[in-house]
Design a protein around this nucleic acid. Structure first.
Lengths: 155, 155
DNA sequence: TGACATTCATCTCATTTGCAACAGTCGCAT
DNA sequence: ATGCGACTGTTGCAAATGAGATGAATGTCA
């Protein structure tokens, strides 16, 4: 009989939720942003100048979700969104000073949070886990598909 | 500097989405159910008779989400929902024959899907991964909290 | 017993979400 | 240049969602 407890996507989901809980408290309660906004902020911080579409690829979130998250961050003056000069369909996103400050603060909290997880399970195990997760992510979704695979989820 | 790529909750989220993509196609396109409904179905299959509240605890999904998922499955005649005789606030959920049939079918698909992941990364690595995920899940969220941690998430 | 807090599930309502449709832009063959 | 398909990001809309309120059942304790 099939055992739900051994079903890898299920275990991954549960571990994701558990490991995210506290940090979600931080960015929702203290900073008033959503997970999508947090994703966008971090990605702009690391890869700016970057377009919305590139963030969609990196995060595998729906493009409309990214579009609206970007809009809210621009409204909050954490990001600037300028038209790309070479391709005017695209946006170019960058941090404002205020956004950079918020990101620095959140980064620090994320670092603490990550360290507490690593401390909990041990450094070696954490390294192993990250490596395994990268292998899971590398699964080629093009294999044996009937149609295109959609990102994001209803849950 | 903080590295998003090494942030365990982020890697977990990405791996979860990637590993769930194809199977989500199965239960959404072919069976027309949501992730929450799938969770409920499996949990009732494994632990029936079970109440809505117990599923909330097991899945860490929001109680209203579970309530509505149960409602839809009852409407679809995959579940029965009877009042508990000893505590009439509670529900007792069980599969109908039709629900059991759907679950058996979905289980088989889930088994295939899980096996394809295991084949991809290797049996030993899969075992290691599951063990590590269980350790992550076991993180005690009671440590150093200010308020209660909420389950589930936005987005 | 009676008063009152707690628990369970559902429901309400404002907000968020995913999907599809859309407008604007580009690449490229003609 | 022109037509046309592919792409980028936004928006409309129905459906899903989360937080808190509600109603009913139970527990607690004097």
């Amino acid at each position: 009989m099939f055992d739900l407890e051994e079903f890898i996507p299920y275990r991954l989901y549960q571990a994701t939720e558990k490991s995210s809980q506290k940090f979600r408290q931080v960015y929702t309660s203290e900073y008033g942003i959503t997970r999508a906004e947090w994703r966008v902020l971090f990605n702009v911080g690391l890869y700016a100048p970057i377009s919305s579409g590139e963030i969609v690829e990196r995060t595998a979130l729906d493009k409309s979700k990214i579009s609206r998250a970007v809009q809210r961050l621009v409204d909050r003056a954490w990001l600037t969104r300028d038209g790309d000069e070479k391709d005017r369909r695209r946006n170019t996103l960058e941090l404002t000073a205020q956004g950079a400050h918020a990101l620095a603060s959140l980064s620090s909290r994320a670092q603490e949070h990550n360290q507490s997880i690593i401390d909990r399970i041990g450094h070696e195990k954490a390294r192993t886990l990250l490596q395994l997760l990268r292998e899971i992510e590398a699964i080629d979704s093009a294999a044996s598909r009937k149609g295109a695979c959609k990102p994001d989820q209803a849950q």
